[in-house]
């Protein structure tokens, strides 16, 4: 009997990540074969996919981590745009680039901590907290910037490291953004699966009362996870400005739900306590592939959300089905 349980547990773990992987592979192959002149796998397009897609995906990693500990962050796009605005202002004030980037990331961290503190201190659902901060930070960014796009060309300042760091190509080929996506995924994966803090994240999301009773400071765990999301937003704000050489008040719009979608597609539970960094990584990649693939296929942009919807529903239904099957065997 135990034998059978073990076998199934294994299978479940495998199937969770592998069903996401199948979706990703099918989509990639589909786009590769069906796109005109196989343009999807053209090196230029792959480079675009990896640099643009990674910006979103880096933030999605943090959102997934946060969801494992049982919280949401709808304010990522707004934190991002607020950080971009901070970057712009400091850049215009001719602060050295290193300090511009550092401050931008610290501001991101601070906004994350604010989300966390409001959520845990006032015991408000983070869905509501971050709905509020989502509107507030974007509102302030719009107010201060007048809703304009403004040039912010970092290359006008002599700096050896800044641009290569955020937008360079490793070996002349591989985009730096994708490198950072992998680095953050590996780092957060180690944190979540191998570090004691990861066990606290899981415990907090899975059963907060138990975690508290076992002496885990669940408020601190949650606040740190919010902060991680904020740091990633600040980092991506820098990377985005480095790539586009301009500030736009629409940066990060719509990312909040795409990030939740990436996590859910990757097998993260909306109730917390369940999810893996591999799954979140693949989920984020899947969202980026869909977005890029549809453009390459010359399918009108509006279809993107239809496909997102289908992929989300498919992955949630299939993981529910798997869970149900599993429970039946146990009983």
């Amino acid at each position: 009997m135990n034998e059978r349980r073990m076998g199934l547990g294994r299978k479940l773990l495998l199937s969770r990540s592998s069903s996401v992987l199948i979706v990703l592979v099918v989509l990639t192959l589909g786009f590769a074969i069906l796109s005109p002149e196989h343009r999807f796998v053209d090196p230029d397009n792959l480079r675009v996919l990896l640099s643009l897609g990674s910006e979103f995906s880096i933030v999605a990693l943090g959102v997934g981590l946060l969801m494992v500990c049982g919280e949401f962050d709808l304010s990522i796009g707004s934190i991002l745009v607020f950080c971009s605005f901070v970057f712009l202002r400091l850049f215009e004030a001719q602060v050295p680039l290193f300090f511009v980037a550092l401050t931008t990331i610290l501001v991101g961290a601070a906004l994350g901590i604010i989300n966390g503190l409001i959520t845990v201190r006032a015991q408000i659902p983070s869905f509501v907290t971050t709905l509020g901060t989502m509107m507030m930070w974007r509102g302030l960014a719009l107010l201060f910037s007048g809703g304009e796009q403004r040039g912010c060309d970092v290359s006008t300042v002599p700096s050896q490291y800044f641009l290569p760091f955020f937008t360079g190509r490793i070996g002349g080929v591989f985009p730096a953004q994708a490198f950072w996506f992998i680095v953050f995924a590996v780092f957060l994966g180690i944190l979540l699966h191998y570090h004691r803090f990861g066990n606290w994240i899981y415990a907090t999301g899975d059963n907060r009362d138990a975690a508290r009773a076992m002496g885990i400071n669940t408020d601190l765990v949650k606040t740190i996870c919010f902060m991680i999301v904020g740091v990633l937003c600040g980092f991506v704000a820098c990377a985005q400005i480095a790539r586009t050489a301009c500030f736009t008040s629409r940066a990060g719009e719509g990312w909040e739900l795409k990030a939740v979608a990436a996590s859910v597609v990757g097998g993260t539970s909306l109730r917390g306590g369940v999810g893996s960094m591999v799954g979140i990584f693949i989920g984020a990649l899947t969202i980026s592939v869909i977005e890029n693939g549809l453009v390459v296929m010359r399918i009108p942009y509006f279809w993107t959300y239809v496909v997102f919807g289908l992929v989300i529903l498919f992955s949630v239904l299939s993981s529910m089905y798997i869970e149900k099957k599993q429970r039946e065997v146990h009983q």
Partner: peptide
């Protein structure tokens, strides 16, 4: 009822909050 985290493994539950660690807090 609230003593355990249902989705975590037996070992991770037993050591919840007091995980044995090697360097840098790695379990």
């Amino acid at each position: 009822e609230q003593a355990l985290a249902p989705n975590l493994s037996i070992a991770r539950n037993i050591f919840m909050g007091r995980e044995p660690v090697r360097r840098w807090g790695i379990i």
